[in-house]
Design a protein around this nucleic acid. Structure first.
Length: 260
DNA sequence: ATGTCGTAACGTTTACGA
């Protein structure tokens, strides 16, 4: 089973590019971030035509996450637990039943947090605390699970072409990195780094200043796997080449395959 | 030289968030 994560930066603007990638990459499940659409505005037909079930958690203008799945989605839950006053659409989870096992699949769009310091950075760090609490609860359940999406965290300097440019940025500040490490240190496996070591692997290139042409990227889209899910992983990769296409997102997909 | 997108709205232009 192939599960992918893709920050599409707007479903309306990205639909043709998203469909082209889906047809080629053929993921069984795609976790989407930044749909920038309310649920009623998200197109279902082009995905259902291709055999995907669709679950969305959107809001007007910004944020918004979705799951496309060729398997039925069971027990869909929207919104990250831990703060009833948080109205931002950044979290969706569902259970998918494979041939061998079932897996809880969680899609996330972690707050950017800039400018830091400030209220937006405080929101990012508190959101990461809630994410850690959700991960602890899922670990207690002993059900295989994954947490995948746009983390807006550059885990280490090797995950940026120009780490010095991000030193004061919410994506790389020590508190952001510490919160990400705390999550991993619960016993989760960062899928890409379990397969590939070294610098030069990115999932985001800014639209500005010719970042793509200079390969001035950062690695901020991640899959964290529970121990049971990590045992089932067979491969992991980044679909870098689609960043060069017409009307691309500023992110590219990352995917993991499982014996599931 | 501060560079580009996508979305919304008191909209043919500006503000915001990234």
């Amino acid at each position: 089973m192939k599960i992918a994560s893709f920050n599409i930066n707007g479903i309306k603007a990205r639909l043709p590019a998203l469909l082209d990638w889906l047809d080629e990459a053929q993921p069984d499940i795609a976790l989407l971030q930044e749909i920038k659409s309310v649920d009623e505005g998200f197109p279902h037909e082009p995905f259902e035509e291709r055999g995907y079930n669709v679950a969305t958690h959107g809001q007007k203008g910004f944020n918004g996450v979705a799951i496309l799945s060729k398997h039925p989605l069971e027990d869909v839950s929207r919104g990250l637990p831990g703060d009833d006053s948080d109205v931002q659409a950044r979290w969706i989870e569902a259970t998918v039943v494979g041939d061998i096992a079932a897996m809880r699949v969680c899609g996330l769009y972690l707050p950017n947090g800039n400018p830091a310091p400030g209220p937006k950075y405080d929101y990012k760090l508190s959101w990461m605390r809630r994410l850690e609490a959700r991960a602890r609860d899922l670990l207690d359940s002993e059900e295989p699970f994954l947490l995948a999406g746009d983390y807006n965290v550059i885990p280490q300097d090797e995950d940026a072409k120009r780490p010095e440019a991000w030193r004061e940025d919410a994506l790389a500040l020590p508190d952001s990195r510490a919160a990400f490490r705390r999550l991993v240190n619960l016993g989760l496996t960062e899928a890409f780094r379990a397969r590939v070591q070294g610098p030069g692997h990115y999932t985001f290139w800014d639209y500005q200043a010719g970042a793509w042409n200079r390969d001035d990227g950062i690695r901020i889209d991640h899959f964290l796997l529970s121990p049971q899910a990590a045992d089932m992983m067979t491969d992991c990769g980044i679909d870098k080449e689609i960043r060069a296409r017409e009307k691309p997102s500023d992110h590219v997909p990352i995917w993991v395959t499982f014996d599931l």
